[in-house]
Design a binder for these strands. Structure first.
Length: 868
RNA sequence: GCCCCUGUGGCGGAACUGGUAGACGCGACCGACUCAAAAUCGGUUUCCGCAAGGAGUGCUGGUUCGAUUCCGGCCAGGGGCACCA
């Protein structure tokens, strides 16, 4: 018997060094084997890696190592999403330059990732804040500009009137700036946009082709793009009620069938009609100002109480010019969507209903369930009843009565298209999208500069190619809020590239989503200094075969990347449409929360868990007082329920941490980090080591007449582990490996001269099966078993179908759907034979005694159900 | 508010396309080894019941020979909502 415990502290760094020296994970573009590109969403260098990273990168690494073993040329790179607000916050709070802070964090986190033993090609590493990266981004921006993919228009931002700075949504707390506490205002700024909305239809339709994406992500994106078919309708305004120049009001609706139930009109606070009317009505102006103080986030707008102001303007109903409706300015109408104006039908829309209730406006039902009569529907109606939103039949609506919703929509469209008002058709059919253009301007320092120069004479002038990159100045101060680029004494002053006159640089930088919209393409050839991408590398590696990241990126990052890839194709930087062929969204890492007797949050490291007859209790180690075990939540600094990967790797090793991360929960779901769970994983590592050291003494060669059970178990495990790895069901892989290890342990306990070689072989297979998850332990075991080379270079085992097949099956027998017994049948028995065997079974026969059998259902290889 | 997801023993979860609910692990309990402990090994562990048996996959109703799986309603928890990344 050898040294009985596996020493990960010594082994893990040793194997990492060997992989490194032999450049095992370095990828060559001229590798002739079929390619496989596996990518995990690159991290923001926030300071230290967290358990979410460990989970994400452990998963990606399993896929990468598995594909390598299956004979693919694998590309598995890593980099840093390095621009962003936290660096500027750190600069303000800690007086450290954003670049210094960022690169220090990268160094720390890179060391942490290395200690995990990931099979990454580090030679391709870059950070998006490297000028060598963002210079290509600036060039592509200019190419997009030339190709008509960029627009300049106004949009609203959160403005802090005290700090004189633009705030991100997360910096607005309860309508106030997070530092100044001042009430936030909406402000209009002229900004740069990428014209993603030109691709709405294309991005929506192409979702159908993304068959290896989670259905829910495709659904979320489809809803986000939000295609709707509707009608724009122009309503005549009662002339004496409306300001001069406003004869009509154009609205957009997807429910023209409910026109008969119209109760009011509502327009956005920044609708031209509202602005004009507000100029003449101080109370209205005050209401508009109030709407403007609500912040710009959708959630804020829609959860706010529905409020409005009656402008006194009246609109004439398109069906009946004597029917006049009030025009309100309402806080829940968005100028960005449709025409910024709607008609309200409270009986069939929740928001309209809320609004009508608050302002005592008419509510008239015009759609009823098909099975009701008009009279019944009218009798059943009340103002207090919730709006009816389902399909049905139109009533109370004159010429539309009796039509289905679809037919009524068509009838309204046909009628109003044919009528005219002020020399144009009253209505027009319109396909509308919710998706808006992508505003990329940020009034911040730590981002990629937008390579534009504003000249009074020449207007907007692109920075010439040879002058790229436009780099950020180093000498900036963060003593004051706002964009340091604006305040910089010299940086913004440049001669116009066209006329040479003094001009000024664009001081906005790009949204960091731009940085992450093409990094996967850059990884295919990060060595190209002249262009963003190289055609050969793009052709070889893209699309990404398996992309893995958090579900929180389901919409924005992924949609922007899909758009950006198309834009790159149009400008000759890529030759594909979809960047990510396979997508997997993993769940979060969550942990129990603890509070001490004073109600303060306490971290798990300061807690000892005791289990006794009263269940689990937590004790604060320092004070010895009992702590309260709170709910399980996403790990966050504020609730102190964080576990530091460094601590875990130091006390248990990288393999144990990786194994536990993958073991319990399905990867798409949240995983609860628990001390007991990690300890269990640690015990398993030692168990494997014991099995391997014992098996290493067994002979390799031998002969037997029969196939030992352990051999069958190993082959079955190869089959099931491979299948589950293909589908990223890591928790099931681990269960299968546990099973195999149990079978091997039993076989070892009863080993004979005959079974020795079979056990040794099964152990070798088991080592290969867990190698993608616990690579260091696997190498150590591989060497202990005296196998050739590295397990990282070994080919994946292949299952022998003959050894996996079962010739007899245990079949459950039900009576009336309840299991009453089992019968053992030959695997190939036909239905009649199985039925006969079920009836012949003693236990079943007794229960059937004297009762008539109505029906017998035999599902081959599954079940027998006898119905009495 | 809108969109999307999730809900199974004491706990994490398994159950392929509607076919034995609880694989595998954690915890707990009992036993072996030990002077003792740790480690390790063996056994038990959904609930009620001595048993026969019955109940059971958030709640509720439906479809089916058969529902964790499909459909309707409800409840609870989570993700996203365009300047957090």
């Amino acid at each position: 018997m050898r040294a009985s415990r596996y020493n990960f502290r010594e082994a893990e760094p040793r194997w990492q060094k060997i992989w490194d020296e032999k450049q095992v994970f370095k990828t060559r573009t001229d590798d002739p084997r079929p390619k496989y590109y596996v990518l995990e969403m690159f991290p923001y260098p926030s300071g230290r890696i967290h358990m979410g990273h460990v989970r994400n990168y452990a998963m990606g690494d399993v896929v990468a190592r598995y594909r390598r073993a299956k004979g693919y040329a694998v590309l598995h790179p890593m980099g840093w999403d390095a621009f962003g607000m936290p660096a500027e916050n750190a600069a303000m709070e800690k007086k450290v330059h954003p670049a210094t802070w960022t690169y220090q964090n990268i160094a720390t986190m890179k060391a942490q990732l290395k200690s995990m033993g990931l099979s990454l090609d580090w030679s391709r590493e870059f950070a998006t804040c490297d000028p060598d990266y963002y210079k290509h981004q600036q060039r592509m921006f200019l190419d997009f500009l030339k190709a008509g993919l960029v627009a300049r228009k106004t949009s609203k931002v959160n403005w802090d009137p005290v700090d004189h700075t633009v705030l991100a949504n997360e910096q607005v707390i309860d309508g106030r700036g997070w530092r100044s506490g001042a009430l936030v205002e909406q402000r209009e700024l002229t900004q740069w946009f990428l014209r993603i909305s030109d691709f709405s239809e294309e991005l929506l339709n192409a979702l159908d082709g993304l068959t290896r994406w989670p259905e829910k992500v495709r659904l979320m994106q489809a809803n986000w793009i939000g295609r709707s078919e509707g009608l724009t309708i122009r309503w005549a305004l009662v002339p004496e009620s409306a300001p001069a120049g406003f004869d009509t009001l154009e609205i957009y609706t997807t429910r023209p069938d409910t026109l008969g139930g119209a109760s009011f009109m509502a327009i956005a606070a920044d609708h031209p009609l509202a602005k004009t009317a507000g100029a003449q009505d101080p109370a209205l102006q005050a209401f508009i100002e109030e709407c403007r103080r609500m912040g710009t986030s959708q959630a804020t707008l829609e959860t706010a109480e529905k409020r409005g102001y009656d402008t006194g303007i009246r609109a004439r109903h398109p069906f009946d010019p004597t029917w006049e409706l009030p025009v309100y300015v309402a806080n829940f109408i968005l100028m960005d969507y449709g025409t910024g104006a709607i008609f309200g039908c409270p009986a069939h829309d929740q928001r309209d209903h809320d609004f009508a209730t608050r302002y005592a406006l008419p509510i008239k039902p015009v759609v009823r369930p098909a099975e009701m009569s008009d009279a019944e529907a009218n009798a059943a109606f009340s103002r207090e009843a919730p709006p009816y939103l389902d399909d049905g039949v139109v009533f109370n609506s004159g010429f539309l009565d009796g039509l289905t919703i679809a037919a009524a929509k068509e009838a309204v469209a046909a009628r109003l298209e044919a009528e005219t008002i002020a020399g144009a058709p009253v209505a027009a059919r319109k396909v509308n999208f919710r998706l808006r253009d992508w505003g990329i301007s940020r009034q911040r320092y730590w981002g990629c500069p937008i390579p534009i120069i504003h000249c009074e004479d020449c207007g907007i002038v692109p920075v010439p190619n040879q002058a790229l990159p436009v780099t950020l100045p180093d000498d900036v101060d963060f003593d004051k809020p706002g964009n340091p680029l604006d305040r910089h004494p010299t940086w913004r002053h440049v001669p116009c590239p066209q006329c040479g006159k003094p001009a000024r640089r664009e001081t906005d930088t790009m949204d960091t989503f731009v940085d992450s919209s093409w990094y996967f393409a850059r990884f295919t050839d990060p060595f190209n200094a002249d262009s963003p991408t190289s055609p050969a590398a793009i052709a070889k590696w893209l699309p990404v075969d398996q992309y893995i990241g958090g579900i929180e990126h389901a919409i924005l990052h992924l949609l922007y990347s899909r758009f950006f890839t198309r834009a790159m194709s149009l400008t000759g930087h890529a030759d594909i449409k979809e960047p990510f062929e396979g997508l997997f969204t993993q769940g979060m890492v969550v942990h129990e929360t603890y509070r001490n007797a004073d109600g303060a949050w306490v971290s798990p490291a300061e807690i000892r868990i005791e289990t006794g007859e009263h269940g689990r209790r937590a004790v604060e180690i320092e004070s010895g007082r009992e702590a309260i075990i709170g709910s399980i939540e996403k790990m966050s600094k504020s609730k102190k329920n964080v576990v530091d990967p460094d601590d875990i790797i130091a006390s248990y090793g990288a393999d144990t941490a990786r194994w536990f991360m993958l073991s319990d929960s399905p990867p798409e779901r949240d995983v609860i980090w628990s001390e007991e769970g990690v300890q269990g994983a640690g015990r398993f590592v030692q168990k494997i080591w014991r099995l391997v050291t014992e098996a290493a003494d067994l002979p390799r060669e031998g002969s037997t007449d029969t196939v030992p059970a352990v051999t069958r178990a190993a082959h079955k495990a190869v089959l099931s582990v491979s299948e589950d790895l293909e589908r990223l069901r890591f928790n099931r892989c681990i269960a299968h490996i546990h099973d195999l290890s149990n079978t091997i342990a039993a076989a070892l306990a009863e080993r004979s001269d005959e079974t020795g070689p079979a056990i040794r072989e099964a152990v070798r297979v088991m080592v290969q099966l867990f190698a993608p998850m616990m690579p260091h332990l696997a190498e150590e075991c591989w060497a202990e078993l005296n196998e050739d080379g590295l397990v990282a270079d070994a080919a994946w085992p292949v299952a022998d179908p003959a050894l996996v097949r079962e010739d007899r099956l245990l079949l459950p027998v039900q009576i009336n759907g309840r299991k009453r017994g089992d019968i053992e049948v030959p695997a190939e028995a036909d239905a009649a034979a199985v039925e006969a065997m079920a009836r012949a079974d003693a236990a079943i026969g007794a229960l059937l005694e004297g009762k008539p059998i109505r029906k017998v259902i035999v599902v081959p290889k599954r079940i027998v159900n006898i119905v009495l």
